[in-house]
Amino acid sequence: MIEVSNLVKRYGSLVALDHFNLNVQNGEIFGLLGPNGSGKTTAINCMLSLLTYDKGEIKLFGEEMSPTRYDLKKRIGVVMQNVAVFNELTVYENIDYFCGLYEADKAKRRQLVDEAIDFVGLNDFRKFLPKKLSGGLLRRLNIACGIAHKPELIFFDEPTVAVDPQSRNAILEGIKKLNQDGATIIYTSHYMEEVEQLCSRIMIMDKGKEIATGTKDELKTMIRTGEKITIEIYDLPEDILAKINDIDDIVNAEYDDNRLTASCRINGHALISILDILRKNNLSFGRVFSEPPTLNDVFLEITGRQLRD
């Protein structure tokens, strides 16, 4: 579906995309995960032929993409990061207009627009002007305008920014449904939970570069850290901490703010060993947590930074 190879894009001296590669298969929900400014939007705009680039090749549907490939554009839907609708047109008119850029037949279009309105749940707001819509509803309108023509390939650029959790879930469910109906989806976000929940494959990117690509499980096995253990302890002497660090399956253990946090090796089981040591030394402890690794841990381990600051 999408083949991007060695894409380089500079804004003046800033390198926004640095030999960026991307391969998306038919039927996937592909997630682009990266912190603010990592180049997600830039990558999408290059693929859409909105931006010039310095080097590289972009193929969509197996063919070279260019601004005049209207045949390819017809099969693509785009939901931009910023809401882009006409303020003077109502919900219905907006969707009809943008759908009309792809579909000339009036009767067909009416049906498509109705379906799109149903799909995003704006039925009660057909005659509303955008300024009368709440932020979440506006996002939904933005989505409807991008997907009404039933494209085969849809780009979603952070469609859930500034949306309350309820609307967010509705949007994510909708995207899943589009995918079930046959659309291939590119989804960008800096929310790892979203990407984990939604995407069949994920690329983590930073500073215009691909850091890692795979399913979420594949990504998690790429790193040394597995399960993460947190134990509340009132007072932990240095030598005990050293002992805990000596356990085979422990990658790193720290004590701070009355909490012991320890990262385990993948598939390692250190919890019992830790609790053994604590008991032997007569140290009492409070609650114990254990979490599986997140994509943030993946990002952290590769870049040394948090995904979100």
Partner: peptide, 17 residues
């Protein structure tokens, strides 16, 4: 103009000539 407004970008990526 795609570089000036979102609707410009939206229309530029559409299949309308």
């Amino acid at each position: 103009q795609a570089n000036l407004t979102g609707v410009g970008a939206r229309r530029t990526v559409s299949s309308a000539r």
